[in-house]
């Protein structure tokens, strides 16, 4: 017997907001994954749209490499508005 694969579930709580990851579940195929996601994650009108993605299709970064991966941003302070000096007379910019 083959086990049902794992799916990641993303729910948009209302239009105007992004889909957010809310958990995972097992299902035989994508149709069943959608129906199970409705029953498991939206029993109280938590969503207006659901995405399901097979977990094996997700590529994730490794937290052990966070240094190399995210560090370069730290020394680029000129990407932030506070890096720039303006005269006090300029109230809003």
């Amino acid at each position: 017997m083959k086990n049902w694969p794992l799916w990641e579930v993303f729910v948009r709580s209302k239009n105007g907001l992004e889909h957010r990851h809310c958990g995972s579940l097992h299902a035989a195929d994508e149709d069943m994954a959608l129906e199970n996601a409705r029953d498991v994650y939206t029993r109280r009108s938590e969503g207006v749209s659901i995405w399901v993605v097979k977990s094996s299709n997700i590529t994730a970064s490794n937290p052990d490499n966070n240094g190399e991966l995210f560090e370069p941003a730290h020394d680029k302070v000129y990407r932030h508005p506070t890096f720039y000096e303006l005269p006090d007379e300029v109230k809003h910019m």
């Binding site: 017997m1 083959k2 049902w4 035989a28 195929d29 069943m32």
Partner: peptide, 16 residues
């Protein structure tokens, strides 16, 4: 429930 789980998997593979 084993036969239901197996049948669902077989159906999913056939659809694929």
């Amino acid at each position: 429930g084993a036969w239901v789980r197996d049948a669902a998997m077989a159906h999913a593979e056939k659809k694929q």
